[in-house]
């Protein structure tokens, strides 16, 4: 695996008329790092995540995703597929596994054809079986049920057009988590989740082997699951190695030294995340 899953070099973002919401951010993200993003309203947190998700391409500087890294992004107002019900939307997260299962069924049927090319079919079968193995496709039903319960999804056959904003977010989150990307970018994942579901999500992300960058105000999540805090302050990104408690200690010290009014924190270059290299 690459040394970094994602690198940003002097990334800045200016919105009209002339507001600089991100300034000169240089950060490298290790695989497997769990990063909580903190900052006041309007400090550019969502913009940073949109840039990382490849949705916002209008920025200064360079940002690069490592080759072969699959990114999953939860927006504040995620879009669902209105053509499908709740189950159909969540299943999109498992599309590769579902396609492989269907493909395998077809191959079994094709073997029975009089002019079947057994070698070609066996080759294709092995390929699909690998995917099924890797994606744990035989346990799809169980995994769907676990996600639906843990995130308290509406009934499977519910029309997504009738769901509340909170329900739509929960469906989108389930779809995203099941898709198992290499890097999860989460914009306020705990909004509209109750305490039990947040606790479940916290454990899920703790166990998740990929990289997580989450904008959240949930301090237990930041304390238990995060190994790094990235604080955005007036456009600058300041990484801290440690959880919420460590960050709070550092913050207290910083306030005690009392930066004079109007002095902005310096920009930081940083490598963020403890590597699973």
């Amino acid at each position: 695996m690459a040394q970094y899953v994602y690198t940003m070099n002097r990334v800045g973002k200016i919105v009209p008329p002339k507001k600089e919401i991100l300034k000169d951010i240089s950060l490298s993200f290790f695989p497997g790092a769990k990063i909580g993003v903190l900052g006041l309203n309007g400090s550019g947190k969502s913009t940073l995540l949109k840039i990382m998700a490849g949705i916002d391409n209008e920025f200064n500087g360079d940002a690069k995703l490592a080759d072969g890294i699959k990114v999953g992004y939860l927006a504040q107002e995620p879009q669902l597929n209105p053509e499908k019900d709740v189950r159909g939307n969540v299943e999109e997260g498992l599309q590769e596994a579902i396609d492989a299962l269907a493909g395998l069924e077809k191959i079994y049927a094709d073997y029975a054809e009089p002019d079947a090319d057994f070698d070609a079919l066996a080759k294709e079968q092995a390929k699909l079986e690998d995917i099924i193995q890797a994606k744990d496709a035989h346990n799809l039903e169980t995994r769907l049920d676990i996600a639906a319960n843990a995130l308290r999804l509406p009934p499977w056959d519910a029309d997504v057009g009738t769901l509340s904003g909170g329900e739509q977010r929960r469906v989108a989150l389930a779809r995203l988590l099941l898709s198992e990307p290499d890097m999860l970018l989460l914009d306020e994942p705990t909004n509209h989740l109750d305490a039990e579901s947040v606790a479940w999500l916290e454990h899920f992300l703790e166990d998740f082997s990929g990289t997580v960058v989450a904008i959240t105000h949930d301090r237990y999540f930041l304390d238990n699951a995060a190994g790094w805090i990235l604080e955005l302050d007036r456009g600058r990104g300041i990484p801290y190695e440690g959880n919420y408690s460590v960050w709070l200690e550092a913050k207290e010290k910083r306030l005690e030294q009392e930066l004079p009014q109007g002095v902005e924190p310096k920009g930081h270059q940083g490598r963020i995340g403890v590597g699973q290299v």
């Binding site: 705990t190 989740l193 109750d194 305490a195 606790a199 105000h217 237990y220 304390d223």
Partner: peptide
């Protein structure tokens, strides 16, 4: 009414 465990 809150879902924030730390707050609670």
């Amino acid at each position: 009414i809150s879902h924030d465990r730390w707050f609670l």
